[in-house]
Design a binder for these strands. Structure first.
Length: 205
DNA sequence: TGAAGGATTTGT
DNA sequence: CAAATCCTTCAC
């Protein structure tokens, strides 16, 4: 038995390439959160945005600071920051050590629901409950205590696409849309946002 | 040391 | 369309 037996876990090496390459590849992967109380929440990644060197919208655009330090490091770590004093945003650090680069996870389609939410009774609500970067962090209880942590089985990690998802993608039963990013004042023309077509969990189709 | 503003969300 | 709300960054 070798490591490929458990290859559904996304390894840091898989993320060690430019964010514009990783971002579309993350669509269909699963973000898994293990809460301190033992509860597990799983969400299919349905919307991503890439941030890269030379990008004026990127937190690492100007200089290396205490906040953005993790962006300059190795791929496979979380970069989490507080926005508007209220919400958190969750990013995955990508590319080589020393090259600041990240993918913002903008929306999840929940596969397992947190306690207290009934999928059958609240189907429409459940599809939208992680539709947005602030909302997905709220529902998965992601905050800055996880900033800089390595994405590996523990509190928070990634799993590759299921073979079913990949097959549907290959047969074009599932398709992606590439377009411009949301909510920015700079770099607004870069087409670095990707999402799954016709997915109700996308924040802004 | 202080002020400006932000990769958002929600309700008016 | 503006408020909520806090932390980071940059200027003085």
């Amino acid at each position: 038995m070798n490591s490929t037996t458990f290859s559904q876990i996304v390894e840091p090496n898989w993320l060690a390439r430019p964010s514009t390459s990783v971002a579309p590849d993350l669509l269909g992967c699963t973000l898994v959160r293990l809460l301190p109380n033992g509860e597990i929440i799983r969400g299919l990644i349905v919307e991503t945005e890439a941030y890269a060197p030379g990008d004026p919208a990127f937190h690492a655009y100007r200089r290396r600071t205490n906040r953005n330090d993790v962006l300059f490091g190795l791929a496979g770590r979380s970069y989490i920051y507080l926005i508007y004093g209220i919400y958190h945003c969750f990013n995955i650090v990508t590319d080589q050590d020393g090259i600041p680069s990240a993918v913002l996870i903008r929306a999840l389609q929940l596969l397992s629901l947190p306690a207290g939410i009934d999928l059958d009774l609240n189907q429409n609500l459940a599809k939208k409950i992680a539709a947005g970067p602030g909302k997905l962090c709220r529902v998965m209880q992601i905050d800055r205590s996880l900033n800089g942590s390595v994405l590996q089985p523990g509190a928070l990690w990634l799993e590759h696409r299921s073979s079913e998802f990949q097959q549907q993608l290959d047969s074009q039963a599932i398709t992606f849309v590439q377009t411009t990013r949301i909510g920015l004042t700079q770099g607004i023309d870069l087409p670095w946002r990707w999402y799954i077509s016709d997915c109700p969990a996308v924040s802004r189709p």
